[in-house]
Design a protein around this nucleic acid. Sequence first.
RNA 1: GCCGACUUGGCGCAAUGGUAGCGCACCGCUCUUGUAAAGCGGGGGUUGCGGGUUCGAGUCCCGCAGUCGGCUCCA
Length: 661
Amino acid sequence: MNILLDGETHQVSEGATGFDLYEDRSIVALLVNGEPKDLSYQLKESDDVTKVHVSSDLGLSILRHSAAHVMAQAVQELFDEAKLGIGPPITDGFYFDFDVADPFTPEDLKKIEKRMKELVGKSQRFVRREVSDQEAKELMKNEPYKLELIGLKSEDVGEGSAEVGAGGLSVYENLNPDGTVAWMDLCRGPHLPNTRMVGKGFSLLRSAAAYWRGNEANKQLQRIYGTAWPTTEELEDYKVRLEEAAKRDHRKLGVELDLFSFPDEIGSGLAVFHPKGGIIRKVMEDYSREAHEKGGYEFVYSPHITKSNLFETSGHLSWYSEGMFPPMKLDAEYDENGALKRQGADYYLKPMNCPFHILIFKSRSRSYRELPLRMFEFGSVYRYEKSGVLHGLTRVRGMTQDDAHLFVTQDDLENELKGVLDFVLNLLRDYGLNDFYLELSTREEGNEKFVGDHKIWDSATKTLESVAKASGLELIPDPGGAAFYGPKISVQARDAIGRTWQMSTIQLDFNLPERFDLEYVGSDGDRHRPIMIHRALFGSIERFFGVLTEHYAGHFPPWLAPVQVVGVPIADEFGDYLEAIADDLRQHGVRIEIDHSDNRMQKKIRDHTMQRVPFILLAGARDQEAKTVSFRYRDGSQENDVPIDKAKEMILSAIREKRQV
RNA sequence: GCCGACUUGGCGCAAUGGUAGCGCACCGCUCUUGUAAAGCGGGGGUUGCGGGUUCGAGUCCCGCAGUCGGCUCCA
């Protein structure tokens, strides 16, 4: 019979399987008519077959999924009371959940990993068996979680889809060479042909608790995370990548470079910026202000606390009160009998700035001539984030948003959105991020969380989508991800090592104008309701600071670097020569220090390199004689005998042009 | 919030239940010529906080706080 093999007609005999098609052992599965299949799949007339290489995305997923099975088998052999949860492949690895009496210890993980190696050595075959619901229930009778999955239809399973998937059920049995069943699991597959092919490129990483089926109301299972690669070399490379990422962790760099800290005395998730971090933040803010000024924004200011009625009107207290710090109860007075003499008021720390800006809009009547009205504020907000989610500067309880609210007419909406997106992307590029994609977060049909008229939602969503598409950037849908009051576009940025961060959000809001009864007078003399655009560019300054720190691994470009230049005299006596150059540069706003300490020159170079100073200027007798300096950069490279005027211009132009060096 | 691990000078780490040490940083002195660590000396810790066990606790037990890794959440 004939099949289509990797795009070409190919003749195979009746009963042939994927094993007959490829000699190459690194072909681990097939894609048959677009569906992933085991190599043992029996070919049918006119099947469209493509190979799945172990190093392809799909191949890696299969490898990792099989590694997860081997791990589960090892766990059940070592802990016979362990019940299976789910065990899918994930980015760079896999996990498997288990219900066990005691959480796994690091020693347990070592034992499990050792047993996995033994199982891999046994070369058990992964054999697929299609089963009926009834058979599946019988085979899984001692696995309560698997039974639950069988009982659910695939569309309800969510993250359990690796187990049951669409269509019929299947189990994978691990067969010993003698044909006996060593272990089995309910699984959609496909898998590698045998456990040996899992190879040695795997490692268990950590264990943690995870709620069954991702629901907080359910029992917590113990999850073990692992990573798996086709070769041990790739495993080692991966571990190196993890170490590299750890080195640029902004929490670590924050300490090493003396940028910020989270004193216990203040409270969780509340940062202080030290002078070195403070100057970076100031430069970031100054530049943002300047850009907003040029962009037609007006600057407003609002207080950090407010009486409760503001957030009652906005709806925050009914929707998000648990994310807010509890109220300060003020001003109530009671007489000696405990009866209320004077009505008090609850004051809240603000979790958002929008209601304040709305009140500024409402402070007088507005004409269509004033729109679009763009209000900008570095607004500090406080959110009572759950203790377990706090994370360095990227998830905090007190932060400053570079927040803007735009009040626009329906007619101006599309244009204004285009302008905002443009503004946002350009500014992000100035800070050194340039690899973006967009996410369009929309309402989920039937979810009560999303308030307002569906028709308005739909037209607003369409407008956002067309603006997003016009940007030419990749657009990824995020159904159900919208805020309760409107759809949004978020800008995702990839950093220097390929991680993505949600940066700016542009949200449409027709709910708050309604709640606050906002109006403007149109050219027709009638009253109309403006549409609001919420827009934060950095998200929060703290978070953006953290992202930039990691993006640059602390090697901030000169315009952001806390100390831009350090002068290192070859010997003490050349300190004055450098000091004269420094005086001149200081007049141009350059942050420059001369290191007069009694360390040796080599030690000074080492210190300032580790502090990520972009320009180290050296000068000795030769330079003094010739009126030159030498540059040493962070990567160890140097540029010698540079005339002072040229050196000055090199430094000033790098700062001016926001260039990295 | 939930599960687990961790918490020792500013930072990074050590210390079979028996006198808390080391390196860097800091301070002082000596030294000072070309691109990543000069030498010598000195000061600094109620071992996160509170209880308990013990003749004796950094070490064992309980509670609390904080941090880290996940889960859930992220207007």
